[in-house]
Design a protein around this nucleic acid. Sequence first.
DNA 1: CATGGCTTTACC
DNA 2: GGTAAAGC
Length: 753
Amino acid sequence: MSKQYININHKYDRIIVLVDMDCFYCQVEEKLNPQIRGNPIAVVQYNPWQGGGIIAVNYAARAKGVTRHMRGDEARKHCPEIVLMQVPQIRGKADINKYREAGKEVADVLKTFTPLLERASVDEAYMDITKLVLSRLRDMNEGKYQIVPEKLADTFAVGYDSIGDFVKKISYDLEGPNEVEEMENVEEHVVNRKSDIKLLIGASIVNEIRTVVKNKTGFECSAGIAHNKILAKLTAGFHKPNRQTILPLKSIAKMYQTLPIKKIKGLGGKLGDQVCEVLKVQYMSELAKFPEKLLQCNFDERIGSWMFLIAKGIDLEAVTPKFNSKSIGCCKRFPGKNAIGGVATLKHWLSELAAEIQERLEKDMNENNRIAKQITVSYTQQVNDNDVSSTRSVPLVAYDAEKITTDALETIRRNSVTFFKSGSSSALNNPITFLGISAGKFDSFPGKGNGLKEMFSNMSGKVAQENLKEPEMPPEQKHVLKTDSQGDPKKSGNTSVCDTVLNSNITSLNDSVNKSKVQVQLQQVFEIEETVNESTYSCLPSSSRPEQVNYVPSSSSISEIKHVISKMNDKGKISDLNDQVAPVDYHNTYAEYYQAVALIQCTECKTNIPENEMQSHRDFHLALQLSQKQREDFRNELKQKKILPEVKSKTSTTAKLTQFLKQQVTGNSITPTERCTECGKFIPCANLSEHTDYHTARKLQFELNQTDMKKIVPIGQPCQPSNTIKRKRSKSKEQNPQLSKIKNLTSYFNKIP
DNA sequence: CATGGCTTTACC
DNA sequence: GGTAAAGC
């Protein structure tokens, strides 16, 4: 079950939260050792070198200039009174179990609010609280609930000096809708207004969530509240620690003007560097100026679409419910002279890792009613001067450390061309600098009292619906909107969100006339609110959809929505944040379009594959066969070499492989393809020579003018696979200097796929 | 030798 | 299946 995406028509309909625990490991240590509270604290991983590596720093220590990436010794220089807590060690390696436990404790609390909880790491989780927000909106509309300002006291809004200013802005919008909306973009105004109100309600809910987390676990966290995951994540970082931040729609563009591209999750690494380098840009607002096609051409097609949308503040990725990891693994590095040089040492460390794996797998089995079916062992060897990493997978048949150890050892031995130093039966030919074992491919089984029934009902949303209608809210804090809004707010015993926020020290608005108006207007807006539309999540499996809120929209509400939608359709435009954008073909982005594609049964694995994915699916099988066959052949060659050392055929392996592949593809009823040694793509045999010519041509051009290659592909130009920047991969440097054969250079660049 | 030990995802 | 990137 890979990623799911929502329909772009609902791009602003969700309220997504990212909860991020503040310096989590430090908080865990504080909770476990209350005597260290109040001190600057850092958590270090034991490492004899320079006082250990810091993996977490609390805010008192940060104030003194201590950061991650520092060593313990260095931290002491900045902050002599710092308390350095050690990560405990078991079996010669770091044991981060207590942090995992603590993270789970937090997630357990979060899950009581919504089943749409996606754990992103040990201390981060996304939540889709749309349903809660709409439900509360309904309650407010019916006078059953009212936001209280205390619940916004630690909230910030991007683009506003204080949350009070944001509320003030909302009330202003509500007050004078007529004049403003006559002028321009009625629908945009409506969208923004609804968005602002929902975000505000969301903030109040998130405040409750964070309060409950604090009360139940003792841990503090920050949160970002926005319309999608990327922005929620980004926004959570704006006010830390122990604060939460809203990102109003209208603030996105302004914020993007000074937001470095690298701050966006997914663009923080090499891809982000390339984007900045190739496009000569620095900030998100600049990225938003490029057409989708251009981004697709210069980068990967999917990535291009994704960047195009996120540059406009749009991210359609759904919050996919996930509580448990998909794999359980552990690893250890053996840098420099710690490198493992003998089998005994190797076996020792493998058994240590296997022991931890077994322990964690057993715990996992008890807690989650599932068993792993596969282990994969990873290792990197030092061959000559450079590190060579490998990973190999084997079936996991028993949660048995010894069995796992021998399997792992055997796997490494089997895949090493020369395992032992010549003449030795204990010294490794290539010292090992990294070892890892991980288990995955889980199968669930119905456990005692936790059968399939519950597994599915967990997803249905019923649990959360019951638990969270009024999550942890003392009844005396409830306020009734209707009574308040009808009377003079000053005389009312209960204070409404607006007047109390405005009167509190957060900000002050002394216009009492506004206050009463705001409340009336709020109510009007609520009435035109819709419920969670079924189609918002239409592309998700029904089990992941939030439950329908039983709220019947008023007739005015329906007509209003219809009005907005029809306007959108008339214009034929989906994005309203940017004007220069042509209508886009989204049919690769949308999960629901996949349903319409015909399914074809793969002759190899008998599974049904969407027509448009068949080629890559076949590539997958071929890649699989290729690597298996390759290893087989190498082994055979080795055998031959031993028996007949003089028979040496460099080409034999590749020749056999080619033959093998040809047999395979012709055995298939589909177009015969062959793998291009240059780009790794599978090219129809008929087109192969042309295709290799294409590579040769490109190489020549590269040599002729290297700087040219860094140029942006202009819009008019067709997309070339070699122009698109994907990931850096080590390609086989097969030279083919048959340059005289090349025809017209440019003729190749327009037609080769 | 020098963040280390994780986990996930996309691609071939 | 195996690899690299990415992020905490």
